[in-house]
Write a protein that binds this DNA or RNA. Structure first.
Length: 356
DNA sequence: CAGGCGTGGGT
DNA sequence: TACCCAAGCCT
């Protein structure tokens, strides 16, 4: 172990100078030059982007952000939206509780705050779907509050700068303390975005570009030569394999039999094909309507956060008068596979009509 | 409070 | 292939 006590503590100004020249451009971001010229970010758009970015890549978020803000330009517009419309538009982005909470939050802002976002970390934290990270991000970026923003990027940067060996998630409080020591009262929003940009483009998990880092002379892990060992993480559990059955019934007029899943739990509130439970044991058949079901020769494979799924897909063509025991028919012109969560879209893609 | 909760891209 | 990873929150 080298003596790292002589390494100077990094300065926020150094990072801000780097950010002025290297800030990534994003649809929701007010760049450093504009910001200095007095342009203020729209709290609604910052909030929207931060919720979408929870555990989700910037690349995946961009189109969804443009779609949502185009369709619902203000928080009041979103508050007035139909639940099913919001869920359908979120389809494919994952972590669907975010979409349900997004709508709850918009309605809370509309109903309890007169359509104006609360402007402090403490007040933002009370809203649904807004946790410590998102509250701090919105408070700092939209309202210039020097809140301590700690996301995965900040955890990685702090763990390396200060050579924190404690594994996550136990290290979180320690890393938050270090992050607090660096958070400036001047330009706190730009600083928050700067650390995240640093983590995303320079201080990356696998191959950090230490030579380009504005804080390279302040980094204890770099001096030790082991930045990629950090942050340490507790080992993850193996994913079990589950299987299930999905039933895709097409009525002769082209309507499809779908059902809205329960509000809570996996894919909560999303549209999907009726089916069996998904378990590690053999699935129990549960056809939603009487029909001659045909089994497709290929299964839909999908991996969720905590299990692998292999879905057997059954299809049937049913007559107009036949009534389903579960779900409801959606007319052909109202059915859009894009409004389904990905696993359900994969199942549909295996059918003849899904291949077109 | 440890685990539930999606998805797509990278290696 | 089978991992890992990405601007977390909720219960």
């Amino acid at each position: 172990m080298r003596d790292t006590s002589a390494i100077p503590v990094p300065k926020s100004e150094t990072l801000l100078d780097w950010y002025d020249g290297h800030a990534r451009k994003m649809p929701w971001r007010v760049g450093p030059a504009e910001r200095k010229a007095g342009v203020r970010p729209d709290p609604y758009r910052i909030w929207m982007s931060e919720v979408m970015l929870q555990q989700t890549t910037v690349a995946a978020v961009k189109d969804y952000f443009l779609k949502f803000t185009g369709k619902w330009p203000t928080v009041s517009d979103l508050a007035a939206a139909e639940d099913a419309d919001v869920m359908a538009n979120w389809a494919g982005l994952g972590y669907y509780a975010r979409a349900r909470n997004l709508l709850k939050c918009a309605r809370a802002v509309a109903a309890e705050h007169g359509g104006v976002f609360p402007q402090t970390y403490a007040e933002l934290l009370k809203l649904p779907g807004i946790g410590p990270y998102t509250a701090a991000a919105v408070a700092s970026i939209a309202f210039d509050e020097p809140a301590v923003v700690v996301d995965g990027n900040v955890e990685r940067v702090m763990s390396r700068i200060f050579n924190v060996q404690t594994p996550l998630p136990d290290a979180k409080p320690e890393l938050t303390e270090w992050a607090a020591t660096l958070t400036p009262t001047d330009r706190p929003g730009d600083y928050a975005q700067a650390v995240m940009d640093l983590g995303a483009t320079i201080c990356t998990p696998r191959n950090p570009a230490c030579g380009l880092c504005p804080w390279r002379d302040n980094c204890r892990a770099r001096l030790e030569g082991t930045p990629t060992d950090l942050p340490r993480k507790k080992p993850k559990k193996a994913k079990p394999k589950r299987r299930g059955i999905a039933y895709i019934a097409r009525r002769v007029d082209g309507a499809y039999l779908l059902e809205t899943r329960p509000e809570s739990g996996l894919l909560g509130g999303m549209l999907g094909w009726p089916g069996s439970d998904w378990a590690e044991t053999d699935p129990v058949p549960a056809p939603p309507i009487r029909a001659e079901w045909k089994t497709l020769n290929e299964e839909a494979k999908h991996t969720f956060t905590h299990f692998h799924l292999s879905l057997t897909v059954l299809t049937a063509l049913v007559p107009m008068e036949r009534q389903p025991e579960r779900g409801e028919f959606i007319e052909a012109d109202a059915f859009d596979p894009a409004s389904l969560p990905t696993v359900m879209r994969k199942a549909f893609a295996l059918t003849d009509r899904g291949k077109t």
